[in-house]
Design a protein around this nucleic acid. Structure first.
Lengths: 228, 228
DNA sequence: CCAAAAGTGTTCAGCTTACACCCATGA
DNA sequence: TCATGGGTGTAAGCTGAACACTTTTGG
């Protein structure tokens, strides 16, 4: 099989997942207490090692599912990290992926294999190795990406209100938006259907729930004229 | 050293470089005739294997220098490719980088170790493995990146004319720009100094040469208000 | 009846786009 | 003198940003 390359060196390849969530108020990050050495007991991103029979993408899906139980999640490769000393226990090149999930979907699932916790993005603890760097890079990517592609919806439940969507974009960009301009912009894409139903959690008056018109949404992603 | 991970699998890690150039007319791609098996004699991207003592970035720099003799080149990680069967000779995960270089600088260098050739981007031959995919992805990234960051200048010589710069942006975006609007926009960034010198290669009249005001250029990159 | 969040339009400035003619020069 | 590419300004439309009041309802 590898007869041509046999004099070359081989390396461990890890996959690390930056898992973003949103709980109607704040942008969250799912972290685990590392249950193996080195650095056992410290907070870290969910990760694992690449196995021979799987592609990088498949490994990322496997690792994400192992923690959250969820499949068909928005998952995108971020960057590969290859400093020689990045992992204190050996030479490991890590390919980072970031994922967007609806916190409620994860919370419904019993998961006892890991000690996991959702942290507010601005209150996360220091992480092992270069995981802080990865998290920072992922947030930057999320900012860019969510400006030009309607991926923000991946973080919300199927039904959501416009104030919730706005809070999400404000959390990602860490800056407030004007309510009227934001609504005008979002509604102009014509991908939301207003339901005859209100969510009264946030206020006395209640805010209308919306759902995505999947057909128009798919079309918008293809044509790509989304710009928040 | 690796006592913690010793039951995990290891992999070959390759670095492949998508090397873009510009020759005052067209966007080019530097390819080599592969001089080792498998697929010896086919056109491919310049690549090599990661070695134990170097980071991914260092490996990319080493490999780029080996082909072009150039250091301090614009070089950025693109994506990692990890399909199980992407390399027909074994399991290899490849981390792709793209580089921007001034064709003239490369041409001045004698290089006999490789059979290399600059291809017009739209006339490149079919490449081995998933290198066509990598090239496609790199061009997309270059489009995005050059819209929001002034990296186009990396592809030009120290002195260049505005028609040349425009041709470059047209080549990258594969679409024509309006001459007056393009000049207005570029000059509005205040990062170019017009010299008292003309380049007469392109026309009878000759076009003024410009050079970059490095100070303002660095400032613009920091502040990031560039938008073509 | 009051507090708290939801919902709703208009105006202005700045940017993007479209567009046509004269200039300088070498052959 | 003419063919070729270089250089220049203005007007119209569009988009993004700023801004304040009314509505609903639970307590």
């Amino acid at each position: 099989m590898s007869k041509f390359y046999s004099e070359e060196s081989k390396f461990y390849i890890a996959i690390d997942c930056i898992i973003f969530g949103f709980d109607k108020e704040k942008l969250k990050l799912l972290l685990i207490k590392r249950n193996f050495e080195p650095q056992k007991g410290k907070w870290s991103l969910m990760g694992g090692f690449l196995k021979p029979g799987e592609s990088l993408d498949q490994a990322a899906e496997r690792i994400l599912e192992k923690l959250t139980g969820l499949r068909e999640i928005y998952l995108e490769q971020l960057h590969s990290y290859g400093e020689v000393d990045r992992d204190s226990a050996g030479r490991v090149v890590s390919v980072a992926y970031y994922a967007l999930i609806d916190v409620q979907k994860y919370n419904e699932i019993e998961n006892s294999r890991y000690t996991a916790h959702w942290f507010d993005i601005d209150k996360k603890p220091a992480l092992i190795f270069d995981h802080d760097q990865m998290t920072h890079d992922a947030l930057e990517r999320l900012k860019e990406k969510s400006s030009a592609h309607p991926i923000g919806f991946e973080l919300l439940p199927d039904k959501f209100t416009l104030p919730q969507l706005q809070k999400l974009y404000e959390a990602i960009h860490q800056t407030p938006f004007d309510k009227r301009n934001f609504r005008k912009k979002i509604l102009s894409f014509n991908i939301l259907r207003r339901l005859d139903e209100k969510d009264k959690e946030g206020s006395r008056k209640g805010a209308f729930l919306y759902e995505i018109d999947q057909e128009r949404y798919a079309k918008l992603i293809r044509d790509g004229h989304f710009q928040v």
